[in-house]
Design a binder for these strands. Sequence first.
DNA 1: TTTATATATGCAACTAGTTGAATACTTCTG
DNA 2: CAGAAGTATTCAACTAGTTGCATATATAAA
Lengths: 182, 182
Amino acid sequence: MALSHSILATLVGRGKPCSGYDLAKEFNSSVGFYWKTTHQQIYRELAKLESEKMLTSELIKQKDRPDKKVYCVTDEGRAHLIKWIAQPSEPSPIKEDMLVKMFVGFLVPKEMLIEELEQLKIIHEEKLRLFREYEKKFFSDVRSLPEKGKFRYLNLRSGISFESGHIKWCEEAIDFLKNEFE
Amino acid sequence: MALSHSILATLVGRGKPCSGYDLAKEFNSSVGFYWKTTHQQIYRELAKLESEKMLTSELIKQKDRPDKKVYCVTDEGRAHLIKWIAQPSEPSPIKEDMLVKMFVGFLVPKEMLIEELEQLKIIHEEKLRLFREYEKKFFSDVRSLPEKGKFRYLNLRSGISFESGHIKWCEEAIDFLKNEFE
DNA sequence: TTTATATATGCAACTAGTTGAATACTTCTG
DNA sequence: CAGAAGTATTCAACTAGTTGCATATATAAA
C-alpha cells in the first residue's frame, strides 16, 4: 500500500509546503485521477508521517482565514520515497464492480446491463474528454516541457489510454449483448 | 464495496454448494483476475453472510480429508445480489503504484524507471498471453456458448483489453523516457 | 522416514479506508 | 442580516483488507 507514498510524492511534486487542506484538494483533482481519498485520511496520514520524521510541520497564523499547518518533506522522507520507488511494484488489482455484475449477468435482463454499460461509458467518455482537454492545453508542445511536466504528461497519457480502453470495452460489450444472444 | 457481492456472485456462478476453500481457490484463478483476497477474509465474510441469512451452510464429513462446510445462496441472498446489480456502479479508483512513481520520476535516474516499466510490461504480457490462451481454448466459437459462458467471455475480453492497454502505455512511456528527455 | 503439498478452517492483531459529525472563521450573495 | 460557500482541522466509530499464526488430516515425493 502507498497512500503515505502518494502523499509524500504529492508534497515533493508541489515543491513547496502544503496544508492538509491543499493536499485534499489536489487529491480531488490531478492526483485524484489515480488515487481517491478523504480529507480525514490525509490529516491522519500527515500526523503519522510527521511522527515518523518523514515530514515537519509549521503552524501558519492567518488573519483572513483559519490558521493552518503546513508540511514539508524531510531528507529522511525524501530518501524513504526514493527507496520505495526503487522497489519493483506490482500492478494493482482491479475490483471493478461491473465485472462482478457481468459474471452473473444471466440473473438480470440484458437491457439492465446494457443501460449500466451505457452509463459507465458516458462517465469514461467524460473523463477522456477532460484529459484530452488537458493534453491540448498544457502538453501540446511536449519537447519544450520542463522535466516535471514530462512526467506528468506520461501520467496523463496513462489516463487517456485507460479511459479509451474502458470505452472500447463498453462498446464491445453493449454490441455483444445486443447481437450475440439469440 | 463489494467483496460480499463478489462472493455471492461466485457462489451463484458456480451453481453448486462451495466451501470457503473452494472459493479461495477460485479467487486466485478466474475471479481473481479482477478481485484478489485472502482465505481469511473469505471465511470471515462467509460467516457474516450466513448470519445475515444470505447463505446457508452444511457440514460435510469426509473420511479422506478434513471435514468441510459448504455454503448455498438463499433466495434472500439472490435477491440482494440482483438488487445490487440494478444499482449503477462507478468505475473503481486506480491506485497504480507506477503512476505515483512516475509523478515524482525526476527524483531517480531514468534508467530505474525504464527498468521498472519493462518489468511491469512483462507481467502484463504474461497475463495477456494467458487470457489469449483461454480465449482460444474455451471461446473460439462464441455463438455456440451457453449464456453463462457468454458473460464470462465478456469478462475475459475486458481483461484482454485492460492488459493490452497497459502494455501499450508501458511501451509509450519507455520510448518517451529514452527519446524525449534531452 | 522426513518433508512437502494439498485439503480445510479459524483467531488475533494490525493497517487502510469510509462515514458522519463537530468546530471555527471569513467572504460572498440575496 | 441571514444563509450559503469556502477555508481549515479533528474526533469517533465503523467497515474492509492484510499478516502471521495455529490446527488438523492425507497423500505423494525425496
